[in-house]
Design a protein around this nucleic acid. Sequence first.
RNA 1: GCGCCCAUCGUCUAGCGGUCAGGACGCCGCCCUCUCACGGCGGUAACACGGGUUCGAGUCCCGUUGGGCGUACCA
Length: 485
Amino acid sequence: MADSAVRVRIAPSPTGEPHVGTAYIALFNYLFAKKHGGEFILRIEDTDATRSTPEFEQKVLDALKWCGLKWSEGPDIGGPYGPYRQSDRKDIYKPYVEKIVENGHGFRCFCTPERLEQMREAQRAAGKPPKYDGLCLSLSAEEVTSRVAASEPHVVRMKIPTEGTCKFHDGVYGDVEIPWDAVDMQVLLKADGMPTYHMANVVDDHLMKITHVARGEEWLASVPKHILIYQYLGLEPPKFMHLSLMRNADKSKLSKRKNPTSISYYTALGYLPEALMNFLGLFFIQIAEGEELLTVEELAEKFDPENLSKAGAIFDIQKLDWLNARWIREKLSEEDFAARVFVWAAENDRLKEGLKLAQSRISKLGELPDLAAFLFKSDLGLQPAAFAGVKASPEELLEILNTVQPDLEKILEWNKESIEAELRAIAERMGKKLKAIVAPLFVAVSGSQRSLPLFDSMELLGRAVVRQRLKVAAQVVASMAGSGK
RNA sequence: GCGCCCAUCGUCUAGCGGUCAGGACGCCGCCCUCUCACGGCGGUAACACGGGUUCGAGUCCCGUUGGGCGUACCA
């Protein structure tokens, strides 16, 4: 391996709260770069214009920074191969797509989403794998020209060999063979003029001189498409490594419904970034015996990318907790510890805003902890008794919690105004008074009936923590309903 | 459905033909101790199943079962 030339990247999509899975893949790339003395680059993949937002991008950057993963090139600091945000690179992709079309490796497709949906429906019904049927492949050159001239919406698809298999080597999976007939005629350029992931990814990795692509295993099946695009463009593909995904306790892909997956959740609860990295790093390093408390530097030393498991490992928060505890007591000096606590308490203005909210509600300063502690607690220790003052049956409570939880996910920008608006809408929809909705939420979020204003508190706690508390509350309430309280 | 992949204690894993199947988290017990933690010591618990191959299989092969991922104008 030409160590000096190693360049790897993390390429997150800013379509939601920063995910621990992103940190997991980022850490792998970071360790890989560190191990080989290479460069670690950040690129924002926001080709999905409908879901990407600048706010999420900022959060992703902040979260990765919090993790301590420093990139040497990125949208915030620039670099020799910028810009590092795909939406800013829109014009860069055009010539590459054109080249593929001109060389007859791609074609324009005018099929509507509705037609494609029907087509796939029919294929599924017939027990066949859904694939583009190639309708627009047979369009005459004249027809294509005239329809393009009439600015009819269309996409560009890539052609796929009709027989044979795609063979390639993967750093984790070894030699892989995927038959071409299992590969669809992937869209390369969307109707809005934005490239798809596949197109943008290949062009950018080439232009940014990426040597090793390490990403989640969900991409393995797409490698043939990528290799083909490299071929069509006359480019040399990088080395691929597909990492096993972290799992929920039930082995499914780690998801926010079943686990706290938001990095901000771990920040809010007072996990140390070092501990989180330590924990994630353990997925890449097999410790047969001996010390598991490791810094990123130590992880890099022990890191062996040749020896990785293909089985997805379950995200075990208990082990994270153990590591975090050890980091707190063994790795921080008294001064460091105190400094961390202050920084943590001040995070997101929790302390300052919390005090403001509390001022009008206490008669003695000593009441403050009882009133505001829920802003800082990692576990409310919620008991069924806490709901005693709420006039609703367990079944009603459960219905409210289960309705509110998914609806809060729809809020784009998390602040007290949007939260209030959403809750009012829910109340109306359920035919209940706002108060009937808010009362149980109040308990779920704060753990008591006397506390700080709900909407403000929810904003301060952040979406991830609120999500988790509602989930816990739903469990508590469900146990009440189950026991026939 | 089809394609690819995976399979050792509850969880993370070591093992690369011969081990009392090792370590770590968790859990339990004991010790330490003004409480609680921490720490120390000990315990609990696994080779998914069925066929082969072999003197010998957790380790190799085949099948079954279970699970995962993919199958988008999302990444």
